[in-house]
Amino acid sequence: MPDIHIERTHTLGMKGARAAARKWIERAGEQFEIECDYTEGKARDVAQFTRPGIDGTLEVTADSLTLTAELGFLFSAFSDQISAKIARNIDEVLGTKPAEEEDDGYGKGWL
């Protein structure tokens, strides 16, 4: 069972969802050295990402984004905070919530 599971529905269509997913991946890569392999499919894209302490996938469809991630031992104690931050960042790239700039004590912009 994944430590983090976030699912968001949207009305962006596949093209818009791909753009939002790539935006999230780009930000995560720049800020946190996430390595990602992105595979486009006809009805579903899958991005597999990794960095020390976290491995996961982001599934992209025409009407949803689903992120699942496994956390390493050191990060698992902060899974609720990490999950909340990732959810806010996904909401931001989907355009469903404004960007938040608070520092939650774990570093601004966590994933």
Rank of each mutant, 00 (worst) to 15 (best):
G109H: 13
A20G: 07
D80H: 13
K15V: 15
D63C: 02
D91W: 01
P52E: 10
L71Y: 06
G109T: 00
S64K: 05
W24V: 03
I4E: 05
A28R: 04
H5W: 05
L111S: 04
E35A: 05
L71R: 08
V93L: 07
G53V: 07
W110A: 15
F75I: 13
A20W: 06
Q48K: 11
E92S: 10
A28N: 09
F75G: 11
P98S: 04
R44K: 14
A43E: 14
A17I: 09
P98M: 06
I4Y: 05
D91I: 00
G29F: 10
L74V: 15
F49E: 14
E92F: 05
E30D: 14
K108Q: 09
T9L: 10
A28T: 00
L71M: 00
S79L: 05
L94E: 03
G95A: 01
A84L: 08
G107D: 02
A43V: 10
T68W: 00
L12W: 04
I34D: 04
Y106A: 10
A21F: 11
T61F: 01
I4R: 03
E70K: 03
Q81A: 10
A28H: 05
K23R: 09
A43K: 13
D91K: 00
I86E: 02
I25T: 12
S79D: 09
F32W: 13
R8V: 06
R27C: 07
F78D: 14
E101G: 09
E102A: 13
I25F: 06
K42E: 15
G13L: 08
P52Y: 01
P98K: 05
T66M: 08
S64E: 04
